[in-house]
Design a protein around this nucleic acid. Structure first.
Length: 634
RNA sequence: GCUGGCAUAGCUCAGUCGGUAGAGCAGUUGAUUCGUAAUCAACAGGUCAAGGGUUCAAGUCCCUUUGCCAGCUCCA
């Protein structure tokens, strides 16, 4: 057979050679590191024989798919260890994830981290035993009987739910056998360095109505040094946590008096205001008109919009003069009232109404997370009203706008398309039309996306833009939602070219998502060292002694006149002390002023990134920092 | 909301077997007038998250509540 290798070279092998043998013929080292293969795009095991021509990639731990194989086997080792130590535990599922693996167990007594060392010890024994993983297949009835006899009801349920034509495979390692599609490492001995990381509850099949299982997370590596490096990386990432930095840099606080209701401090407000100014400018350029709608509106409005039926659980209510009112969880009904307050011609469309709208939503207490998930936040919202034939170009416009914004901050993002959820309004035709319009727009500019089945808003499908935090968790920020329902419910109209009344299509969208969440993402991505255009304090003036105060004040004035955010450290402290503090506050530039500077009329510049930059004229410093701010340099 | 863990000074954290709270940093005051990441000294700072219970005695043991952390669920 002919095999095309990863580097494109073609080689002839005897039929039936397995991945390991092929790897070995290429290099001893590759054979040693190989964990599996990818044959014609399909993941295969190390000892899978290859019988036909095709493309073969030898997978090692360095490949994403290789890691998955490695971690999947690691999760089986954990399950085996737990089965040995705790007799009554019932197995459920145990996949590899992006960073390691987990296994969910049904157990009466919950695990705690104190159990970890015992479990790890048993896992290391299993690794040492170097048990072979053997795959075998059973017909459905026998498979069910097999797991039933083993006393594994969850496995029986899993098998029963497999499609008719599914191959039901098992993997056996020593006394332990698990239902599993694979693929796996050939033996437990290939896993070297293993560590259990955390334990948490998780609902069976992710449904909160089901029983809560015990989930143990772990990770493993082929080398001890890689494990140490990973744990070290996690420690470093914790230092970038926006909750920690928010406190250290005095950006915001959250108090017991208002869980999930953040307070913004002066320095946090600087960032907020810059983001909002930038946002207003960019939206004005693109033909958006800004509005502001009330936070409290009559409950009847929310019945009309459908929020009462589909979003009530997340809403706060109040009473005014004996009447029921609701605190808005979304801005759309307000924008619809604005739209309906005047007549519209087709000539006015598309009408792009934007609003920095403060919304309140009741999130579950366990879901709150710093500024990332709160109960009150400002959405940088907009509602676009358009004729049906404007839909695609409007969607495109918003996609480009979001891409433009995220690129300025240097963010990588990924996109998900969320389709119709169970509890939703509108006809199937409208949903299909709306979903197709979103797909068409994304395909038009070649945007890669993942489909998230059934995760749309109750009124329409959406495209979500996700950003990563410091430890790789992803958060939804931008979103574009197409809506045929609200205009219908609110009886929105425009007069067409034909003189008849028509229904507009509506697009909901946010770019930042929520200002609060976006600031959290910014903080974590920059580790608190905001680029100069965003930094709450851009320049700190550090006089050597109070002899130089007058000159320092003079320089401060020059900078203030040029709209630079500047602070003067006039305390009676040594220069090293002041520098240290400014550095820890991650201030982009320090100006050190002593006798030399007073005499020459210059400033001595120290950059947070590069340290001492030497003496410059004030003009020279000003023009370079102003240029940096103007360009929004990162 | 659920599962598990945690809560001591503004911050970071000690506090042994239950015997009556301590450090560093920050703050205040004084001295020092200094050249690129911490000058010295003194002072002040606490209903040990809140409430209840056990005990001669509770920061420490038990219960309840609140908040926080990780995950699940949910979501901008």
């Amino acid at each position: 057979m002919k095999i095309i290798l990863k580097d494109g070279t073609e080689k002839e092998f005897e039929n039936g050679k397995n991945v390991y043998e092929i790897a070995k013929s290429l290099s001893q080292r590759l054979a040693k590191e190989a964990v599996g293969g990818k044959f014609n795009g399909k993941i295969v095991e190390l000892f899978t024989p290859i019988n036909e021509n095709g493309k073969l990639e030898i997978l090692t731990f360095d490949d994403e798919d290789g890691k998955k194989i490695y971690w999947h086997t690691s999760s089986h080792i954990m399950a085996q260890a737990i089965k040995r130590l705790y007799k009554d535990v019932k197995l459920t599922i145990g996949p590899a994830i992006d960073n390691g693996f987990y296994y969910d167990f049904d157990v009466d007594e919950p695990f705690t981290v104190d159990d970890f060392s015992k479990i790890e010890e048993e896992m290391n024994k299993i690794i040492k035993e170097d048990l072979k993983l053997e795959r075998f297949v059973l017909p459905r009835e026998e498979a069910i009987k097999f797991m039933d006899e083993k006393g594994e009801p969850y496995k029986v349920e899993l098998i029963k739910d497999l499609p008719e034509d599914a191959v039901i495979s098992f993997y056996r390692q020593g006394e332990f056998t698990d239902l599993c599609a694979g693929p796996h490492l050939p033996s437990t001995g290939m896993v070297k360095s293993i560590k259990l990381l955390s334990v948490a509850g998780a609902y069976w099949r992710g449904d909160e109505h089901n029983k809560m299982l015990q989930r143990i997370y772990g990770i493993s590596f082929p080398k001890k040094s890689m494990l140490d490096e990973y744990l070290n990386m996690l420690e470093e990432a914790k230092k970038r946590d926006h909750r920690k930095l928010g406190k250290e840099l005095d950006l915001f606080s959250i108090h017991n008096e208002g869980p999930g209701f953040p307070f913004f401090h002066p320095k946090g407000m600087v960032i907020r205001n810059i983001l909002e100014d930038f946002w207003r400018k960019e939206h004005a350029k693109r033909g958006y008109l800004e509005i502001k709608t009330p936070i409290i509106l009559n409950e009847e409005l929310w019945h009309r919009s459908g929020h009462w039926d589909h979003y009530k659980e997340n809403m706060y209510f109040t009473k005014i003069d004996g009447e029921d009112y609701a605190i808005k969880p979304m801005n759309c009904p307000g924008a619809l009232l604005v739209y309906n307050s005047t007549m519209h011609s087709y000539r006015d469309l598309p009408l792009r109404l934007c609003e920095l709208g403060l919304v309140h939503r009741h999130e579950l207490s366990g879901a709150l997370h710093g500024l990332m998930r709160v109960r009150s936040f400002t959405q940088d919202d907009a509602h676009l009203f358009m004729t049906p034939d404007q839909v695609e170009s409007e969607i495109l416009g918003v996609i480009k706008l979001i891409d433009y914004f995220y690129k300025i901050f240097g963010f990588d993002y990924f996109v998900e398309l969320s389709t119709r959820p169970e509890n939703s309004i509108g006809s199937d035709e409208d949903w299909e039309l709306a979903t197709n319009a979103l797909i068409k727009a994304m395909e038009h500019i070649g945007l890669n996306y993942k489909v998230n089945e059934g995760d749309g808003a109750f009124y329409g499908p959406k495209i979500d833009f996700h950003l990563k935090d410091s430890i790789g968790r992803t958060w939804q920020c931008g979103t574009i939602q197409l809506d045929f329902q609200m205009p219908e419910r609110f009886n929105c109209e425009y007069v067409g070219q034909d003189g008849e009344k028509h229904r507009p299509v509506m697009l909901h969208r946010v770019v930042f998502g929520s200002i609060e969440r976006f600031i959290a993402i910014l903080t974590e991505n920059f580790a608190g060292a905001f680029p100069t255009w965003l930094a709450p304090v851009q320049v700190k003036i550090l006089p050597i002694s109070d002899k130089h105060l007058a000159y320092a004040q003079n320089i401060q004035q020059r900078l203030l006149e040029n709209d630079i955010r500047v602070e003067l450290d006039d305390r009676n402290e040594k220069i090293g002390y002041k520098i240290r503090e400014a550095q820890m506050q991650k201030i982009p530039y320090m100006l050190i002023l002593g006798d030399k500077e007073v005499e020459s009329g210059n400033v001595s510049v120290r950059s947070r990134k590069e340290g001492d930059l030497g003496s410059k004229s004030i003009q020279e410093f000003l023009s370079s920092i102003l240029e940096e701010i103007k360009n929004k340099s990162l």
